[in-house]
Amino acid sequence: MANPILVLAEQLRGEISDITFEMLGVGRALASAVGAPLYAVLLGSEAAPLAAKLGKADKVFVADNPQLNLAPAATVTAVLKTVIDQSQAGLVLVGCTNVSLGIGSTLAAQTGLPLVNFCRAARADGSAIQLTSQLFGGKILSDVKLPDGRGIACLYPGAFPADDGKSDQAPPVEKLDLPVEAPKVTFKQYIEPETGDVDITKQNILVGVGRGIQSQDNVQLAEDLAQVLGGAVCASRPVIDQGWQPLSRQVGKSGMTVKPRVYFALGISGAPEHWEGMQNSLCIIAVNTDPKAPIFDGAHIGVVGDVLELLPVLTDKVKARKG
């Protein structure tokens, strides 16, 4: 039998994150292909009751310990290493999320196992595992092989179906009782999201602007369109980081997840971290000067052109149409 595949389950504030089910789904498929068991490891307070949701795994290692809530990477990897040694796990799946960022690399440093970041696809090839990684903001893909199936793969959220990792059955649980060293990084408190003037998650129409909008003044052009449409402006990270829009308007990995009826992606390249937050919009209209921008691969409607030219004309035409 091949070495077990191990999923580092992720939870935030007592809820299992979607990425966990995505990893369990793809982990199950890989495990069947190579003939290996699938294990999961879940850490933190309330871990024991949450483990019941991880039925896709053949066994869940649980360390129910409040000290492991949002613990630093080195503390988490100390537990992971114990589980890997004990179970002889070969492939470890970790989420490419803000919560888990750094855990995979710390584990790689401590075990010498190779790590493949940003994975969007995974398949078994005999006893080897082949991973497809998405680089350079979505512009390049890379196929990487773990020849003996041993390594760490960080999986992009949203790249694998979460439903494949869900199960009604509770898995067998093995409790871990490990001493946890006093960490040098300690969690103090959550800072709740700022409630802005508008809740972009509740809008039917979102006019999303990216770096292509070029200046704070130009954001007004998007405001004008949003206003005639009865929607709101939202933005990609660089626009927020420049201070052109408040944090409450950020869409993507660190920002909000939105699902409007229409999402305009104006001067937004379509980097995976932005895509994560708006991919389920019902109609995505992308406008970009770069015909090869990755956003066109996922958008429904595409326009190769300058948003600064298009916006005023479009706003006028919508106004005229609405009468």
Partner: peptide, 8 residues
């Protein structure tokens, strides 16, 4: 995610 931050 979702604008949530943690202080450490």
């Amino acid at each position: 995610a979702g604008g949530l931050r943690g202080e450490f």
